[in-house]
């Protein structure tokens, strides 16, 4: 009979999984929007990952494996707090987007300046208000800088889905940021 939780397993885990803790924390923070909840989420993810580390196939992408565990942990533990499923009026946002999107290159330069005036907090708030699937791809692509293929691996979906979600997420974000800029008098 072998003892499951031996020193070798811990050493392997420390070498394979621990270097990704920063990336997972940053993702958790953007998903939960709260540093305490992010810490709890990272801790739960790592405990769960260690318990099932014997199931991890050596040589495969450990970071993707950890992200998948975090996503499931987030869904099971943290989203439970919200009794009602997220509702998002896409049509309303799309209509608003069609009205505010840039109509010429000159507008685009002006809008770049407007976005430059926005603060980190305002952008973070806009990201956290996106529906979960869209928020995930924006965080992974634009903040963490992963490729479509890596993101597809992390969230377990085709590359085409990553591309279309990202396209839509940025449109929603644009509409929200435009709205913020308007309320601050930048537009």
């Amino acid at each position: 009979m072998t003892i499951k939780y031996d020193g070798d397993l811990y050493a392997d885990f420390e070498r394979e999984a621990v270097p990704h803790m920063d990336a997972l924390y940053n993702f958790a923070l953007r998903m939960t929007g709260d540093s305490d909840e992010a810490s709890d989420l990272v801790q739960d993810t790592y405990m769960r990952a260690f318990r099932f580390f014997d199931k991890f196939e050596k040589g495969t992408n450990c970071k993707a494996w950890l992200f998948r565990i975090m996503k499931n942990t987030y869904i099971n533990n943290y989203r439970k707090k919200t009794k009602e499923p997220e509702r998002y009026d896409y049509e309303e946002v799309e209509n608003y987007y069609e009205n505010v999107k840039p109509s010429s290159t000159e507008d685009a330069h002006l809008e770049k300046e407007i976005f430059d005036n926005l603060l980190d907090d305002q952008i973070a708030t806009a990201i956290s208000s996106l529906p979960e699937d869209f928020r995930t791809v924006v965080i992974l692509a634009d903040i963490e800088g992963y490729t479509y293929e890596e993101i597809a691996d992390f969230i377990d979906c085709p590359v085409g889905t990553v591309r279309s979600r990202l396209h839509r997420a940025r449109k929603m974000l644009y509409a929200k940021l435009y709205d913020y800029a308007g309320s601050k008098g930048y537009v």
Binding site: N26, I127, I143, R170
Partner: peptide, 18 residues
């Protein structure tokens, strides 16, 4: 829109380490 939002998010959102 894609480019400006990507650039705004990239520039403004700081990376938080554990």
């Amino acid at each position: 829109v894609q480019k400006s939002v990507k650039s705004a998010v990239k520039q403004k959102c700081t990376y938080h380490s554990c």
